[in-house]
């Protein structure tokens, strides 16, 4: 009989472990949870907007999930319980097709050169990135910021020879902020968000590759009314103010 008892103890432990880790996604009582998936570059602004939304909607908790837009699309397609999706580019929003209800552009972002404080390599424009001895770090062409960097370089007829092609803007910023690289190409908002850790150098060619951010309530949203209200907040005056403060351009 000891075997049976041990078995049931094991079974009980398993059940406990499973229930303990399961998320309480039920909408019992007046507590409601709105889940917003947003591109990593929106971390600061959407955290702020989430707080505003909670303040305006009593009993509503905004749960934010940040990540690369393509990762988030993959998660939404696999059934992640998201109500709103804000993408860093139209390409990834388009992948959702009908699953996204009426996507609207809410912000734009342009490229900027980031250099370590003091600009040790004396970079002043895009051309300078090709100077011999300049350690340049960019995003890999596979990720959106890398695609934009490539198209800017191409239209300026420049061949960039980076020492590293990073997976994300954060990785590029890290290499620049630590002084490991002399320059990196990231977005205006990234330079602004990094504060005094890097300096930004704008360049006119950036206007040729403007990234537009779309947002949409999702068709399968559990909180479709709240989802639409969140989208409205982002598109409205308050939302646009928060985004502009962070350096985002008009859509």
């Amino acid at each position: 009989m000891r075997t049976t008892r041990t078995l049931s103890a094991l079974a009980l432990a398993t059940v406990l472990a499973v229930t303990a880790t399961g998320c309480g996604s039920d909408d019992s009582g007046s507590k409601q949870t709105l889940t917003v998936f947003a591109a990593s570059s929106l971390t600061r602004t959407f955290t702020e907007l989430g707080r505003q939304f909670e303040a305006e909607h009593h009993g509503v908790t905004v749960r934010l999930g940040f990540g690369g837009s393509s990762d988030l699309v993959e998660q939404i397609r696999s059934g992640a319980p998201a109500d709103v999706f804000a993408s860093a580019d139209t390409k990834n929003m388009d992948k959702l097709g009908d699953a996204a209800t009426d996507p609207r552009s809410f912000a734009s972002n342009t490229l900027e050169i980031a250099v370590p404080p003091g600009n040790p390599a004396g970079i002043t424009d895009l051309q300078d990135l090709t100077k011999p001895g300049v350690k340049l770090v960019v995003c890999a062409p596979e990720v959106p910021c890398g695609t934009a960097t490539q198209s800017v370089a191409r239209s300026a007829s420049l061949t960039l020879k980076p020492v590293s092609e990073e997976q994300s803007v954060t990785d590029v910023l890290g290499k620049v902020a630590s002084g490991e690289a002399d320059a990196g190409v990231v977005y205006v908002t990234d330079v602004k968000g990094a504060g005094s850790k890097v300096e930004g150098i704008t360049f006119p060619e950036a206007a040729g590759a403007v990234n537009v951010y779309p947002i949409a309530a999702l068709r399968d949203a559990k909180q479709s009314r709240l989802a639409q209200e969140f989208v409205d907040l982002v598109l409205g005056r308050d939302g646009q103010q928060v985004l502009a403060d962070a350096g985002f351009g008009k859509p």
């Binding site: 770090v137 890999a140 596979e142 990720v143 590293s164 092609e165 997976q167 890290g174």
Partner: peptide, 26 residues
Amino acid sequence: TITFAGSLAGTTRTLPIQIYLERFDD
């Protein structure tokens, strides 16, 4: 590797980094 060495084809982009990168695109 990604933090210290970076990621450039043939020099620092090892197989795990290549996999991570391809995941976005292909």
